[in-house]
């Protein structure tokens, strides 16, 4: 495809989501260009992000539910063994950081880890395969292939990472207030770290610190995955016979990155929620 369009058009095509929303002129429609997608503002949805993330989420619960239904305390099968390894890994991480009784945290951590890992793993599929396929399908349905967008890695969409981070943020606020009471939570914001005479300063510092949690969660994951994707796209601009020289090492390195980012998101979520339970 790189031969059919300019490099910048190719890159921007790869970085545009398949967007459906209310366009001020065209009404409810799929965005034909990146500009149209931007014009839709907030009232639009990235179909590809939703599609892939939900599909991968269902893949996760399908595999794990299958194991959970037939889970035996006897000799485990290979799938159960694999699932148990992940579950025990998550359980170890949770129990080493989070010392309160809460039935939500461990399943939450497991979902975060596996789901993000699966979404990140989409990055390892060669960048052109699925977009090319969908362009052909779109063409068969009479669409202009240049206007068919398909971004397959949901975590390179800031909406996906922010969505998860906001959900975690909601839990942080919920548990802070539940464990310490509204007064205790606000008191923590107002009277720390410098005592009541520095109240405005404390409030500013603590609120920035509080907001930094979801923002850093979302941006760290998004930034890593977006940068990784971008490098794959740039490699794809090279002549085909030279691509493997760079894409193979980068993909191998990327295996580390996708696992690490899923792990970091999980651990930070646990840490933040443990902090929310902590009473000073």
């Amino acid at each position: 495809m790189a031969s059919e369009m300019t490099s910048s058009a190719y890159i921007s095509h790869h970085l545009t989501n398949w967007t459906f929303g209310a366009h001020p002129e065209n009404g409810l429609s799929f965005a034909a260009t990146a500009q149209e997608a931007a014009e839709m503002g907030f009232w639009a949805i990235h179909v590809d992000t939703m599609l892939w993330s939900v599909a991968l989420g269902f893949f996760f619960i399908w595999i794990f539910r299958k194991v959970a239904k037939t889970a035996t305390s006897g000799v485990p099968g290979s799938t159960q063994n694999f699932v148990e390894t992940i579950v025990e890994f998550v359980e170890d991480n949770v129990s080493s950081v989070f010392h309160y009784k809460n039935a939500l945290i461990a399943p939450l951590a497991l979902t975060i880890f596996v789901w993000i890992f699966l979404m990140n793993t989409m990055d390892l599929i060669p960048v052109d395969w699925i977009p090319f396929l969908t362009q052909k399908i779109g063409e068969a349905f009479g669409a202009d292939p240049h206007h068919v967008y398909m971004k397959v890695v949901p975590t390179t969409d800031i909406n996906a990472t922010l969505g998860m981070a906001f959900a975690v943020f909601g839990l942080i606020l919920f548990y802070s207030i539940k464990m310490k009471g509204l007064g205790g939570f606000l008191g923590e914001l107002a009277f720390q770290p410098l005592g009541k005479w520095m109240l405005p300063f404390n409030l500013f510092l603590e609120i920035v610190g509080l907001l930094a949690k979801p923002v850093s969660l979302a941006l760290r994951l998004f930034g890593n995955m977006y940068a990784g994707e971008m490098i794959f796209i740039l490699i794809a601009l090279l002549p085909f016979w030279a691509q493997w020289l760079l894409s193979v090492p980068w993909a191998i390195f990327h295996i580390l990155v996708i696992t690490l980012q899923a792990f970091i998101f999980m651990v930070l979520t646990i840490v933040y929620l443990a902090m929310a339970h902590e009473d000073h």
Partner: peptide
């Protein structure tokens, strides 16, 4: 890189998966 309704969709999907998992 537009911020839009996808955030809400992701929050709903995430909540569903977490609750199902739990």
């Amino acid at each position: 890189m537009n911020i839009n309704l996808t955030i809400i969709g992701q929050i709903i999907a995430f909540t569903f998966f977490v609750v199902f998992c739990m």
